[in-house]
Amino acid sequence: MDTPAPKLFFAGLDIGSTMSKAAIIDAEGSICGYVVGPTGAEHRHRANRVMEDVLAKSGLSLDEIAYIISTGYGRVNVPFADKQVTELTCHARGVAALFPDVRTAIDIGGQDAKALKIKNGKLIDFLTNDKCAAGTGRFLEVTAETLGLELNEMGRVSLQSARPVRINSQCTIFAQQEIIARLSEGEPLPDILAGVYIAIATRVAKLARQLKIEPPVVFTGGVAKNSGMVRAMETVLGVPVLIPPEPLITGCLGAAILARDEALKLISRGEFRTQKKQLSEAHIEFTEKAA
């Protein structure tokens, strides 16, 4: 063959309740590009936008993507996806790709928190805290609003605390009242913030403990970007936690890897259909290499 076969690419989209994430990988599993942006109300519109952005970032066109998997709350709203997989399976796969020895993963997103047990890179058990803002990113957002702080500022301020206050309420609304009460009692801001982080970490650790925490523990999701939260999580769990370089993209990365696995499986069964002849040739070469 004179002309070199084109490379194959695979995409994963994670349409979360708060943020939408997308990644494209090649056949070797290297990340060609990724994007992160707010989801907003228009899930369908958002899916198109995030796909266009990640293609632009990777310098690719949609035709070059062999297989697409969507995940997250909005996974049903990705019309161009070949398959939908839950965010639990995708996160586990993404985390295991970055930390092959991982046994426990904790993910805190905008509206949910999940604990995952992983063995040999595969999800074996999980628990989620669904439809309650306590112990999620939303809890932090409401706290930031209450205190008139920026989210990233909050983490930094909390690290100055030597004696975190106790926040007893598990409910987001009641906890905000408690924060205001502590403020009026004259408790220092860093101690209150550190107390908020401990409260969230405690709630999420409760999920993880039900699955029996085994190290290494990986902490992902938007909330893992918060230095105060990471410290609180380590304090509560009593073990160090590993944070990926970009903790928001483990879900979409996992989806992209699963897209690659799925495509490979279909190719090996001879069931992979594509209108592009060139791509078919590439598939064959890819299969031979994989075999």
């Binding site: 839950t86 965010e87 639990l88 399976t89 595969k122 999800l123 058990d125 999980f126």
Partner: peptide, 13 residues
Amino acid sequence: ATIKTRVEAFVET
């Protein structure tokens, strides 16, 4: 609706 994702993930495992 709230248990849908959990059931799907269970089936995936």
